[in-house]
Structures are given as C-alpha cells and as structure tokens.
Design a protein around this nucleic acid. Sequence first.
DNA 1: TTTCTATATTCCTCAAGCGGAATATTGTAA
DNA 2: TTACAATATTCCGCTTGAGGAATATAGAAA
Lengths: 126, 126
Amino acid sequence: MDLIAIYECLCDVTRLRILNMLLRGPLCVCHFQAVLREPQVKISKHLAYLRARGFVAATRRGNWMVYALPPHRPRELAANLACLQDCAAEHPVFRRDRLRLDRLAPVLPKAGPCACARTASRRAQT
Amino acid sequence: MDLIAIYECLCDVTRLRILNMLLRGPLCVCHFQAVLREPQVKISKHLAYLRARGFVAATRRGNWMVYALPPHRPRELAANLACLQDCAAEHPVFRRDRLRLDRLAPVLPKAGPCACARTASRRAQT
DNA sequence: TTTCTATATTCCTCAAGCGGAATATTGTAA
DNA sequence: TTACAATATTCCGCTTGAGGAATATAGAAA
C-alpha cells in the first residue's frame, strides 16, 4: 500500500512547498533556500526524506545539487501531484512561492552554476 | 494550511479504507467492523479521529451510529477524495472492501436497525 | 430498575517524525 | 595542500499518533 507513503510525504508543509516548486521544473538547493526561507538543515532533511522514498531525484552538478521530480512517476504519485497542483493554485503560500521562484530563476540553466550563484556574483559585481 | 490536515488523515490505511467505504454512501459502525475485520476499538478510534476533524459526520439512530461524508466538502477535501477514489479502484484491498460491502448491504435502510443487525437476526432465525 | 447491545473513551506503551545545533562531507578554487 | 562553499548527516529533546486492554456510556428491551 504505497499510497500511504505518498500521503505521509504530503503531510508536511515544507515538503508540499518543495514539491510545488518542483512541479515547475528542476531546481537546485539554493532555490529552495531562497524561496522557502527556512534553515538549511530543515530543507536538506526534507529533500533527503523525499529522495529516500523516491519522490524526487537528485543530481550533482559541481558544488550544487539539482533536484527534480522523478521522470517516471507511478500513477498514484502522478494523480496526487496533479491534485496538489490544483489545490496549490489557490493557496497564498504556494502562490507566493511560485512568484518568488519566477522572479529568481526563469529557468534552470543546463550547465554551470545555478541561478542563485549567478545572481549572487552579479550582485557582487554591481 | 488545512491541506496538511487532509493528508494527515489520509496517512492511515484504516482511515483510507473507511473513507473508501463511505464514498459509496452512509454506513453504520457494524458495517466497518464486518468489512474491515479490525478490532472494535481501532475502528472506533479512527472514526473519532475523522469526526473530530470534520472529515465525517455522525448521527445516532437508536443504538447505532451512522457515519457519512460531510454534506458540504471544501474544495480540497473533495479533490482528494476524488483522487483517492481513483487510486482505490486499482488497489486489491479497497476493491475487496467494496465487494464485501456490496454483498453485505446493498443500501443503508432509511430507518430501523442497520443491515448488520438484520442479517444477524436473520441468521439467528434460520 | 436491571440487563443487554452498540459504541466510545481512558490509560498505557511504543515508534516515528520534526526542528535545531553542531559537525561532517564533497567538490572547487587558490 | 589548504581554504572555502554548498550541502548532508548526526545527535538530541519533544510531540504526536498508533494499537490494545479495560472500562464507560447511551439507548433499547425485559
């Protein structure tokens, strides 16, 4: 009954927000930190939780870790993610996260440092 | 963020099975006992859990308690129940519960003792 | 009233998950 | 190498929920 595992994963606000962000596309950890504004350890642990259960996939890119929803999602996961996306569309917290995310990084670059790092160095330049 | 409360409620197999049964219509406690075949205290406590959070409504009918999904369901609850119904259609446990339920009580009578009681006395007569 | 039946509640123990502080790891850059 | 930056892990205290045994309640029946 892996439905239970799915619901357990959806039981936490931080994880919901992470998944909501990932519904837009792959992201690196600094994105989560910048958008969620939660302590690093908290974000890292929830990412580990999701990863251990196969709800997200992680890839290292130099110093950065890129997280994404798994390419092949079982029917139940897909259904519940769709449901979450639906519900999230109305919740202020999720909407705000999406806005912050759009402002932060239009898309994740295919290579090189993540957007956070680039904006940080850009800030340093100006 | 009452989405969390919904997911927390869906985290337990027994509660999922109860909700799956209730998606067909109102039921009394003996139905749950007959179909789920779990200890009385377990069923009662999960019903209390669901009731305390407004996920089911309860009415007394003489000695029996009739449980039902609440008449007016917030959008998120409705969405997730629909999703559950979808997922349940494929899971052996849920399907078996539905079958047992259909065999047990085609419909809940509008008044009088519940079907369990009637079948029990019918058994006693024969 | 007393008794019975259906259901709920209390008390207990146990395991799991959360959050945070501190620390470890891994890759890059100097 | 050494130092640094990004991220992960460990340890700890706390809370919550699950399950079961025993007991309580509420209504019907005798």
